[in-house]
Design a protein around this nucleic acid. Sequence first.
DNA 1: TTGTATGCGTTATCAG
DNA 2: CTGATAACGCATACAA
Lengths: 359, 359
Amino acid sequence: MARRPTIKDIARQAGVSESAVSFALNNRPGVSQDTRARIRRVAEELGWQPNSAARALSGEQSGAVGLVLARPAHTLGVESFFLQLVSGIQEVLAAGRIALLFQVVEDLDAECAVYRRWWAERRVDGVVVVDPRTDDPRPALLEQLALPAVTVGETGPVSVSSASSDSAPSDSVVPALSAVRADDAGAMAQVLDHLHGLGHRRIAHVAGMPGLAHTERRITSLRAEARRLGLGPGQVRSVTTDYSDAEGAEATRRILAEPEPPTAIVYDNDVMAVAGVAVASELGIPVPGGLSVVAWDDSALCRVTRPRLTALVRDTAGFGRLAAEELLALLAGGRPRSRESELPRLEPRESTAPPPAAY
Amino acid sequence: MARRPTIKDIARQAGVSESAVSFALNNRPGVSQDTRARIRRVAEELGWQPNSAARALSGEQSGAVGLVLARPAHTLGVESFFLQLVSGIQEVLAAGRIALLFQVVEDLDAECAVYRRWWAERRVDGVVVVDPRTDDPRPALLEQLALPAVTVGETGPVSVSSASSDSAPSDSVVPALSAVRADDAGAMAQVLDHLHGLGHRRIAHVAGMPGLAHTERRITSLRAEARRLGLGPGQVRSVTTDYSDAEGAEATRRILAEPEPPTAIVYDNDVMAVAGVAVASELGIPVPGGLSVVAWDDSALCRVTRPRLTALVRDTAGFGRLAAEELLALLAGGRPRSRESELPRLEPRESTAPPPAAY
DNA sequence: TTGTATGCGTTATCAG
DNA sequence: CTGATAACGCATACAA
């Protein structure tokens, strides 16, 4: 019962050599059509599956890729982002019979240690790198280990809501890793257009963790977009947090206590947005009557709270699928490349409205 | 750079045989203390790590365990439960240098297929089974495959909030799988005691997916507890959902439209609870003034919405740690056994209060 | 087109 | 205590 069939069993059963079986099962030339078919049938009957260890050992790939999530325990949990991302990644991986090794660690150092171990143990053929940072040690490490990788969530071109500057990416500079990028600048432009169009002139941004590429990117984009819209530097500002509801609430409290509080706040995730709404209502500030709120990333959370939150909708699972496709392409010998995910869509709901008339 | 050191390298460097290295590195007798130390040092210098494929091939274990999550895509995402669980599992696994294979699939059949494949490919040494069902095909399959497994979330003894009936679990019946159980009956007793103590006599229960063991368990426990408290069968009822905010809202709408609506509703997860509060307020029913709400499982969600939700707090990461420990024990040759996780704690917040006086 | 021989890195079984 | 040697299952270069 616990014995798995091997190609030897198949060879014996089909009356051929082991190598013939190997060829037949791997779609390689060197075996006639009928024997190939016969071997296939026998393998099917016996329920044969390749032994991943043996495959990996004989120079092939391990048939697994890895994903490490480096987040302090208390910040993970509520965000739907990762499960959706992983779900999308797997959809593609499963089709190629690739397994996903998943690991949650506390910090970046631990993450790097995991990569080293996976590499040394030959556990994975490649990795998906999430939460890219402005000063990120991982690309260099992965390149050094020659471990194929795709980063997900790097931010797009630095241009400010301008025409896509796809001007001949110099082929001489080969990126070490593939990347699936998000156009945070374009997204921020949408958000600001929406708020500015409603009449908001003082806008705050409760961002995520400092050091993350997309955090920094959104912060600079906010300033750039403000300039574009003719808003002064005193009219927009960003504060960073750890993504938790606690820090989101705290930041909101500080911001609303200022002498000239903003009339709109953009939150970098859904949990903080909801926490912000709660803080505002405790302070007697109605949403959206006295304060407009936008959540970056949509979720059930944004739809079940009242008022329903205006949110940036991204196809997170699609993001994951894209990442997995790029990784598979890399593993198949393709050159590293960069792909842009589709621009998020701003879904206006009940939490955004014109600023109070008194303003 | 991309070459990993092998024991052969170590043997040459240390001037001993390969088998000596293998013995030294695996804490086996048959090698003197100094050579052992020397070999260790050389291995350290060279940064040697065992090649997992080679280990797995030579009859050892693969050094990986699996976890499959079978959930339709739209129901996963908001629940903090799984990331927390996984986080706890890994904490224990990482200490034993065991990798976790994680896969998200659509349904139970696909989940079983994954187990078969993992088994055939020798990918994992064991699995963690979540979302146990009342009529579950997985234990039989795993037993047939001789794949060590621990189920997490099975419900505790059938006794109704009685003294723990730990009366000599008959040793003759050896369970096939280890289990980490949750005392849903005890938890339900706490919830009903709380609500009954506040004065509630008509209580509804918006449960999760039918067929899940804990769903059925909570439903029967609700009835049993009601009997204990002297409530008639017409005064309590459960409805099942798919855990989504949409079905949670829909169920709430139906329940509140009944001729004699309940004064309290218990929701099987946080998202549905929040959705339920929203529906109630849309119908002009204040929470907790006109309706009390309890959420099963706490999360940031329960703390950021207003009113803050009274919730059953469980140490989900601890749950995961327990599961991982049991699995490791099983892999180490231990006998399957069943462990009870600690009883959840009811955290009263703002969403529960005495029922309206008019009642 | 087919069968044979060898290697992958490790563990395990034997001899010395 | 040590050093060869054979598996483990698969891929592949090479010989028939």
